[in-house]
Design a protein around this nucleic acid. Structure first.
Lengths: 197, 197
DNA sequence: GTCTATATTTGGATAGAC
DNA sequence: GTCTATCCAAATATAGAC
């Protein structure tokens, strides 16, 4: 039988989490306060403690949610089998994910929040996301660790510049395809050189 | 005649600034407090106000100092006239500058400090640094805006990954030369294609 | 210039009534 | 579960003595 009570509890929890994201977006991730979150959901600050044990627990829930969103979106990214096309698709997904919500990007990929460390459980979700990404790239044929590192640098660089220097625009998003063509040409040449040195 | 008083004042100011850097490195940039800074220089917190009008003024002085350091290091970067070699030298300088002091990197290039905005004066110093960088790259032959954007993405991406995922190591620093070779091959091809489309 | 004392604000967290 | 009342700590900043 359905547990109407815990359903309601979960719903309210989700509502608070939404409010926390809005607040973080407005005030900056480090500037998040429970007071602001409470005001946004129409509660008094102490009432939040029925849903989250501490402010850090809120950060942790946001972190876990962000990781899940990353995984879900990744599962929806359709691959064709054509290496270059798939490389572009993965890059577009990753950079799109980062730029569409810079606050989430900051929480997940940069470590700039005061004293926050994700819980072991949340961290496991995060690891799963990275593993899935590596799996995708292995399917494309990118398995060499250095080639992978170069690719992640390119991806985060494009995302970071877009967020920092043209928020809301597409100045670096426009360069994704060109960047992937450059990268693909490079690793193709490297592989050939590796076959016959 | 020398003004011993103002010399002493400047010296103490510099000492406080050093302490602020140490504190920021230890507690995180956003976690900087005047209490900690004061303790580190052996003063009571209110005494700092003889040297800085506010906490923001401390951030601003740190920002300006970082920009000056960037400029000075850049002036010392010797170029040879060989485009690829110079590209590598500039990249090594930039990424070295970022990774050798992640706190400074965060203050100058990311915008993650609570409510801090650099003053107009400090911001001007920052602009000068970017202009010098652009000038250097123009000397190498990189003037196309999109080629420049791609290069900055590569540079910040390498620096960012190095800082975030291998602090103190050289996992991405090792890739600088390869990345610049990849980039150079790409823009060479592009230029040729542009000449005879 | 430096100190003590203090004002003020802010924000996380708890106690206990309803 | 939610509220009011409150505590406690931290941190910026000011006033005024020395």
């Amino acid at each position: 039988m359905r547990d109407r009570k815990s359903e309601r509890h979960a719903r309210t929890r989700a509502e608070i989490l939404d409010a926390a994201w809005e607040t973080a977006r407005a005030e900056g991730l480090a500037g998040l306060t429970l007071r602001d979150v409470a005001r946004r959901v129409g509660m008094q600050p102490p009432s939040l403690y029925s849903y989250f044990a501490s402010k850090d627990a809120v950060y942790d829930a946001m972190f876990a949610q962000g990781c899940r969103e990353f995984l879900e979106g990744q599962a929806r990214t359709a691959l064709t089998g054509d290496a270059l096309a798939d490389l572009k698709a993965v890059a577009r997904y990753f950079i799109g994910f980062c730029t569409e919500n810079p606050t989430r990007y900051q929480l997940l990929f940069q470590r700039t929040v005061p004293g926050f460390e994700p819980s072991a459980e949340s961290f496991a979700v995060s690891e799963e996301g990275l593993k899935a990404l590596r799996g995708m790239l292995a399917g494309i044929g990118v398995t060499d660790p250095e080639a992978l590192d170069l690719l992640t640098a390119l991806g985060t660089g494009l995302a970071d510049q877009q967020i920092s220097n043209d928020p809301g625009g597409d100045r670096w998003i426009r360069l994704i395809d060109e960047a992937m063509e450059m990268y693909f040409a490079h690793i193709s040449k490297r592989m050939k050189a590796g076959d016959a040195p």
